[in-house]
Design a protein around this nucleic acid. Structure first.
Lengths: 216, 216
DNA sequence: CAAATATTTATACACTTGCATAACAACGCT
DNA sequence: AGCGTTGTTATGCAAGTGTATAAATATTTG
């Protein structure tokens, strides 16, 4: 009488397993929203059994929060990477920042689905709400700095109040175009969103951010 | 031996019940996301028992779709109402449209929560995706018309391609500011978002939309 | 006022959910 | 090699899920 064979397994490092579980969670959320992120679905995708989740996280709730934090870190990290690799002229830096946020991998249906799923609950779930606001303000501060530098390098200086308004507006354009790109990417040519974004920011600031020959 | 008394009830009209169920669904989604929208929670909020849902809808899925359609109809309807009540000068119409979309009741945490919850699944659920795209394009067409009129009334004419770009950009600013307002409304003064939105649109179009004395 | 109709309730069912627990086996240590 | 530690699996459970069905009652009809 053959007894059911117990499944073989390997012991992965703690950090590695945690990361795998978070990744699997994000995949589930991206595909079917928070509803699709059941402990069993997550475990299946991570290649483990459901019980293991509770060995690394107090409960499903904490795993979801960790996943959300990871997403936001990843998004801001992508934006900063775009800044690090680009030249020092402030106008070009701002343009590069805008462009980077309006093209893959930032513009991505999976990422958007995750973002929307989590943010929908940020209003009712305090932990998620706090995590969101921190990420949002960080992003806006980054925008404000870039805008201030771009203005200063062209000899203009704005009052703090005006700077704030401009940062909010620039941030909004980026967010709005990002949204449209994620939701209906097929409606735009490659680079079109970035083009529109940079053009809009130029108009709002009254500056040219790019050299004359780069408009393509 | 007292037999459990059967609950009293009233027969509401068909359309009324359907609307009540949809309303209850939206309340549930607004509070706890799609996860909170269980048939029992919905029924409880609508003041009926769970079984009744299946008398008015083939299944829960169809109720959710109907609820989503209702939300989008309501949002676009609000925007159009703002247009109907305002004067005929094209610039002012555009300004009023922008302002209406950046203040309550369009800017509202509950509405946003619903929107985010549904749109997160618009990528994977074809029915929701179609419903979304239709609503989105309708909104953008509206923007494009308003922009075209505003430009024309000030003697400028844009090519179709340029008009398209401007409409996308204006749409993005509205979306982005709406998002910020819904997520962190307490960070903005009353009317500040509308002010920023109109200012940004003016800059992008190179027009003044308001009379000189209305800037407040 | 009685009968017919169909809205609404009540109950049951199969399934999924997150979580608890105990058995097990992979790995590090000596 | 043997042993202990603990990462991992397997199993079970109570609560909650959507749905199916029958019974009951509010309302309409004759």
């Amino acid at each position: 009488m053959a007894v059911a064979a117990r499944r073989k397994f390997r012991r992965e490092g703690e950090e590695r397993r945690r990361q795998d579980l978070i990744e699997a969670t994000l995949d589930c959320v991206a595909e079917h929203g928070l509803q699709g992120a059941t402990v069993r679905a997550i475990a299946l995708r991570a290649g483990v059994t459901a019980g293991l989740i509770r060995h690394y996280f107090p409960g499903k709730e904490e795993l979801l929060q960790a996943a959300y934090v990871t997403v936001m870190e990843r998004m801001t990290e992508l934006a900063k990477t775009a800044l690090a690799t680009v030249e020092h002229e402030p106008g070009r830096r701002l343009a590069a920042f805008v462009a980077a946020n309006l093209a893959p991998p930032v513009v991505d249906t999976g990422t958007f689905s995750i973002w929307a799923s989590f943010i929908g609950r940020a209003g009712s779930d305090p932990a998620l709400g706090i995590a969101h606001r921190a990420g949002y303000l960080g992003f806006r501060d980054e925008v404000e700095t870039l805008v201030a530098d771009a203005l200063a390098s062209s000899g203009r200086h704005a009052s703090p109040a005006e700077l704030r308004r401009l940062a909010i507006a620039v941030n909004a354009v980026i967010d709005g175009l990002w949204l449209e790109g994620c939701l209906a990417g097929d409606m735009f040519e490659t680079g079109e969103l970035a083009e529109i974004g940079i053009g809009s920011v130029e108009a709002m600031l009254g500056l040219r951010l790019r050299g004359e020959r780069e408009v393509a």
